[in-house]
Structures are given as C-alpha cells and as structure tokens.
Design a binder for these strands. Structure first.
Lengths: 341, 341
DNA sequence: AGAATGCAGGAAAACCTTTTCCTAAAACAT
DNA sequence: ATGTTTTAGGAAAAGGTTTTCCTGCATTCT
C-alpha cells in the first residue's frame, strides 16, 4: 500500500501538496494537481483513514447496540440506519448484545475506545443505566424505538400508548367487548402498550378482566403459552390484542390447536407489522410501525448531532444543548387491516 | 479523555512503562505497576485504539458485505458472525449493498481505506468480479453461503447440489412423479439447486416437464407469480420444489387462491429453513441450513487467516497459501419434515 | 575483585495523516 | 521603481500509541 510520502515523491511535490489536492483544503496550481492525480492513479493510492482519524479526531463510524440482529424488527431498523449512514459516508459497527447487560457494558467501552462518532441504542436499559452511559459517554447517544425519557438523550420512534389505544379502539369499534391482552416485559411492550390498552378500555366504558391479561417475553413460543393460559378460564375473550406480531402468531397457533377459529371465534390484532404478519394465515391485522424509517431518522438525527458538535468547539455543552432542543421525533403509525379481526 | 502521556506523568513513570503495564509486553516492577494501575483507575484511562491501529497495522475490525441486512437469512448469518468475532475481540462493520454492484465497489474501497483486517462476502458476484476484488484486496476474503469457486478465496456453506437432490428425492420417495421447480437467478438458487433437482429426477428415471420449471427472483411475491405460471398448464404437478422458503410461501399462497389444497393437491418443499417456514400454515417442509453456524464458521475461518497472516511476515504469499489449504468448509444440511408434503 | 550477563526502565523513532507556520515569488498599489 | 499584500507550496509539528535501542544498575561467574 502506497502512502502519501510515496505519492509526494513520485509527483515531485511535498506531502502537504498531496494532502491539499486530495482534500481540496487549499488551492493548488493545475500543473501540480495533475502530477498528483497521475501519481495517485498510477499507484492506486488511498488515504489511510486511520491516520486521518487520529489527527482529525473523527472516525466516521457509528455504533449500533442491538439486542439481537437476527430479529426481523431490529434488522429492519439496522437497514434503515445503514441506508442513511451510507449516504453521509459513515460506517456502522454492530454490537449484538443478546439482551444481555454485561455484553452491553463491554461493547459500550469498546466503542468509546474505538472512538466512534456516535451511538444508536436499540437495546432497552433502565433509565439509571442509561444515565450512567450518558455520563461516561464522550459521544452523542440516540435511542431508537426504545421509548425512555432521559434528559439529553433524544428518541425516535412512535407514540406507543397512542398506537396501542388505536388497536384496542379498533377492536371495540368492531363490536368486541371482552378483549384480552398479551403484553411484554420491557417499557414499550410491558408498560406503554398496556397503558394504551387500559386507557382504551376505560374510555369506552369497558372493564378489564384480569384473567385475560397475560405477560410474557416477546416470542412466538411464549405467545403460544400465554394464549394457553388465557384459554384456561371458562369464558374466553372474543378478541386479543398482542403487543407484538410474534406473540400474536404464537397465540393464534394455540387458538387453532384448541379447535377455535380466527377470526370467527377469537379476533387478533398484533403490533409492529413485521414480515411475518403478511405471510401467516389468516393475514394478521396489526399496527404498522415505519420501522426502516425509524432507523433512518435515528441515524439522521445522530449525524446531525455529530456534525453540529464538530463545528462549534465545546463538545459536552453543545451536545446537551442540541439534544434537548429536538429531543423526541415521533413518527406516524397506522393500522393495517387484514384478516384476523 | 486522558492519554498515555498524562498517565505517565501522573504515575511518575515513562510512557514506555505505561504501555508495558497495559499490554504486559515486558516485565515491570510491582512498585511501578501499582502506580500505573492507580493512575489508570483514577483518570479512567482507555488506550486510544486508533493510535494503536495506526502503529500495529491492525484494526480488529472486519467488514461484512451483505446484500440486504433486513433479510432474515442474511441477518442470521450476520448474527453468527458477530457471535464469533465478539469472542475474538473483533468488531464488525456492515456494508449493506442492496444487491447493487456499484455500492459494493464503493464499500470495498471504503473498507480497504479503513484497513479492515478481513472481509466476509455474503453478496453474490461473478467469478470475474471476485477475482478483481481479490487482486486489489490487501486483506483476506471469505465467502459465506456464496458457493463460487475462486482460487484463494475460501468458502463456507452447504452442499447446495446435494441438498436440492435430497429435497427432490424426498418428494419422489413420497410417491410424487410430476414435480415442479421454482428456482432463482444466482449461483446457488439458479444453478446449483436446479442441478440437484435435475440430477434427482434423472437418477430416479423421471422426466422433467419444462412447463413446470419457472425461474424468478427470490421473494414471496415472485414465488406467487411463478406458481401462477405453473398452474396455467392444463395439468399441474403434484409437488413443487422451491429453492427458497420465501418462494415456497408465495407459491403456496397462490395455490390456495386457486382453490387447491396443500399438501393434498400439491405438496411443497422449501429451502433454507428460515423462521417463516415454521409459522406459515401448513408448516413448510424444507431443507434446513445451519445458517448461524455458517456465519460462525466463516468468521472463525477469517480470523484464523488474519492471525496466521500476522504471525508470519510475508502477507500476500501466506494469504494464498492458507486459503488454498482449507478452502471449502461444507456444513451439514438436513431435511425438516413438517406438513407440506 | 573484576568482567560478563541480565534486567528494569527511559528516550526517541515510527506509523500516516492534517494543518500551522513560514518563505519566496508574484501581483498589486503608489 | 519601491513597498505592500496575496498566494503557492514546503518544512515540521501534532495526534497517541508501540517498540527498538540504549543506559545504568544489580546479579552472577571466574
């Protein structure tokens, strides 16, 4: 691999001149420019971005902390992030933390050591953990689809409560009165979406039957088990709101196995609108999140913070300032009416 | 952020000593060790990995070129890669090329500029393109699940032809004689798996009906269309081998829409065993690939090449040597018998 | 005791850039 | 023609490490 020195020698100019030609940072006579370009061409020179990073204090790399890349939802967000960063000439380093806090600690330090320019968090933490990260972080942080309120850490996602409210209201609008809920164990899936459900029930004067409320981790298998539990009561609900599509698919599975029909005996509505919901039979009615868009917006926001940061000197202060300025981007959700209600 | 100089001053030792304590590269007296550790602790010092990379010529970063991260198959390979690299203290940078050659060119250069230690390719190229990459690459390359034979570029995946052969033989074993094929447009999906199909048909003395052979890109929607085409003939096959699960799901969809039953009227067998195949009704019988394992093995192989490379000086030569040594890792596939045949 | 060996630890070079600072020549104004 | 400003381009510092080379001291051998 040739370096700038070799190009300088070959072109018969100084190192500074080569640098200036490469970056256009100062005018260089056409004559010398040509000599440099020729040398670059001939030797296939590519500036060493490591040396560059060292002096510029900028890696053009962002880190994405993701609970599990192989999960469709996260993979889609990642794809949105990548789309945006690619345009802005940033690379993305993935940190798969397997929903494991210790891994995340490790990765977090790793990323700071590697001096990434910014970090997008898809992995849910407690507010305290997040505040700790924020303290040691030397780089801007953005939460994507993790609806936690931490001062100075911007968030991009949807209105979780409102979306859940819409889902349940839709069921009620279709005449359902006995509505079950399968909910999860993190902020969005465990608290916010449940809150939307409760609110919708209350607003429509319906009472919540605790036998129809089951909490479980977010997976097809767990959704199946949760539904089994709901079907143990002598009566069963006429509709169930599942706070994720995976859960809904599992729950529907269980419903068939008990000899019941969807949507005739029990209607289902899911959440997220991942691919699965379109291939499952009957096709799952669900709340659509603009998943890829969330990724894109998160990346856009982060890059905005990074570049703004770079311009004005005082890092920390500006960082806070900017974050507080535009701290929550809420994208629109929608209801995809398909065949399960 | 403190640097090594500040630690040295604080501990009252030389820079060299700090470095030696951090890396254990040479013995240091307990006395000085303690002073260094204390300083490190107090100032929360983390060595700057950029400076490190610059001098060691090692970034501990590998690049993964992927056609589309949001695709379940690729996301799973990625997850396998990540699992392995995390253990070996490598980071992974993703390069989503959207099945677009120009993007890939761009990314390839970017990765060389960033001096990644190695590259895993999940994106299909022609043999010529690959040979070109190989020429300009300063870093080892590994193909994962892209069964191309290029001298010096190791491959890890399954026996595509054999697996397809098994799938079709299974159908034949179940008494099917008229077997359709929906195949794709790249090496694995377009050539190898088709080859396995033809071979199995021939070996069992069955003739191939060209009306039952349809080529299409790999997606649910395209699978639907392909099946539509097959069903246009007056007779229809009693079974169809789809070279990917997505295609199979689409094709089954079409079958229902035409008022036919799976598997009674037409049996289906897919390929890959991605999540979808377990949630679709009836559950899809398919060829299981150890997807995550492919990722893990590819990463393991790559890291092996990198480290071996590092040890012995002469880069290029060793690189070739090593690659030729163990150039094809073929993992075992298996048939997942479910409900569609 | 004197020479030889071993070893802890410091100084400085090296990695490859960008950018500041400087010089010399060209352009301009008087 | 002389003095002043602008400009192109070179030399060198800076960025944060690792490692080689060297020094000076303690230990071992004869």
């Amino acid at each position: 691999m040739p370096n700038i020195k070799m190009i300088a020698r070959k072109a018969g100019v100084s190192i500074s001149t080569v640098s200036r030609v490469m970056n256009g940072s100062k005018p260089v006579s056409p004559e010398l420019q040509k000599r440099v370009y020729d040398a670059v061409q001939q030797m296939n020179y590519k500036p060493n971005s490591i040396a560059r990073s060292l002096i510029l204090k900028k890696t053009n790399l962002i880190g994405v902390v993701v609970p599990d890349v192989s999960n469709s939802f996260h993979a889609q967000i990642l794809s949105g992030i990548e789309e945006c960063t690619a345009h802005a000439d940033y690379g993305v380093m993935i940190c798969n933390v397997y929903r494991n806090m210790k891994q995340q600690q490790r990765y977090f330090n790793l990323m700071l050591e590697r001096h990434v320019d910014g970090i997008i968090l898809l992995h849910e933490n407690t507010v305290d953990e997040l505040t700790d990260f924020q303290k040691i972080s030397t780089t801007p942080l953005v939460l994507a689809s993790v609806p936690l309120e931490v001062k100075g850490i911007p968030f991009v996602g949807i209105d979780e409560v409102g979306a859940a409210y819409d889902a349940v209201s839709f069921l009620i609008g279709k005449g359902h009165r006995e509505i079950g809920l399968i909910y999860g164990d993190c902020t969005a899936l465990g608290i916010l979406r449940k809150e939307g459900y409760i609110k919708a029930m209350n607003d429509h004067g319906l009472s919540v039957n605790d036998d129809f409320l089951v909490q479980c981790p977010c997976s097809v298998a767990q959704g199946y088990q949760a539904m089994e539990q709901i079907l143990q009561s002598e009566k069963h609900p006429t509709a169930v709101f599942c706070v994720s599509d995976e859960m809904a698919v599992g729950a529907m599975d269980c419903t068939y196995d008990k000899g019941l029909k969807v949507p005739e005996d029990i209607a289902f509505i899911g959440f997220d609108d991942i691919e699965i919901s379109q291939v499952v039979r009957p096709r799952l009615t669900t709340i659509h999140q603009p998943i890829k868009e969330i990724g894109r917006e998160a990346a856009k926001l982060l890059i905005g913070l990074i570049e703004q940061n770079g311009k004005t000197g005082r890092k920390q202060e500006n960082l806070r300032l900017a974050a507080e300025l535009e701290s929550r981007i809420i994208l629109k959700h929608s209801l995809m009416e398909r065949e399960t209600v």
